[in-house]
Amino acid sequence: MLNNIGLPGLLLIAVVVLVLFGRGKVSSLMGEVGKGISSFKKGVKEGSEEVEDSGRELTAEMKSEEARRDEKLRDVTPDDQNRV
């Protein structure tokens, strides 16, 4: 159904919307849409930064845990004097 809308159809829709709502209302509506898009992009950027930060924290935690585990592992082989 919407596949047959061409440039003339889109222009007609734009003119009808402009006549119904007026120039000021359409302009403010488009401004709000722009603000919403920029807010969405900002949220996505902050979310990805948060994921990267938590990944770094997890990596650092794993490294410190590995170091603690290595400290606990000690060589328990007998000394040379106990060998036969």
Results as ranks from 00 to 15, higher is better:
Asn3Tyr: 09
Asn82Glu: 15
Lys72Met: 15
Asp53Asn: 07
Ser64Met: 13
Arg83Val: 08
Gly6Tyr: 00
Leu73Asn: 14
Thr59Cys: 03
Gly34Lys: 10
Leu2Tyr: 13
Ala60Cys: 00
Glu32Asp: 07
Glu50Ala: 14
Asn4His: 09
Asn4Trp: 03
Leu11His: 06
Ser38Trp: 07
Arg23Ile: 15
Glu61Met: 05
Gly6Asp: 05
Leu7Lys: 13
Glu66Ser: 13
Glu65Ile: 06
Lys45Phe: 14
Gly36Thr: 14
Arg56Asp: 11
Val33Cys: 02
Leu2Gln: 11
Lys35Pro: 00
Val44Ile: 15
Ser38Glu: 10
Ile5Glu: 07
Gly55His: 00
Arg56Pro: 00
Gln81His: 10
Lys45Leu: 03
Asp70Lys: 15
Gln81Pro: 01
Gly55Lys: 02
Gly9Cys: 01
Val17Asp: 03
Arg83Met: 12
Lys42Asp: 09
Asp80Pro: 00
Gly34Phe: 04
Val26Ala: 02
Arg83Ala: 05
Ser27Leu: 15
Val84Phe: 08
Leu29Lys: 04
Glu61Phe: 10
Phe21Val: 12
Asp53His: 07
Lys25Gly: 01
Val84Gln: 08
Pro78Ser: 13
Gly22Phe: 02
Asp53Lys: 10
Ala14Val: 10
Gly31Ser: 09
Gly24Pro: 03
Gly6Phe: 04
Ile5Gly: 01
Asp75Gly: 05
Leu18Glu: 07
Gly24His: 13
Ala60Glu: 04
Glu66Asp: 12
Val51Ser: 05
Ser28Asn: 11
Lys63Gly: 02
Glu32Ile: 10
Val17Tyr: 00
Val26Cys: 03
Pro8His: 03
Leu12Lys: 13
Glu71Ser: 12
Ser39Pro: 00
Asp79Leu: 03
Gly47Met: 02
Glu46Asn: 08
Gly36Ser: 11
Leu10Lys: 07
Asp80Met: 08
Met1Gly: 09
Asp79Ser: 12
Lys42Leu: 04
Val84Ala: 11
Arg74Tyr: 11
Glu71Thr: 09
Leu12Asp: 06
Val15Ser: 05
Ser27Gly: 05
Gly24Tyr: 10
Gly43Val: 01
Ala67Thr: 04
Lys45Asn: 04
Val16Thr: 08
Met1Leu: 07
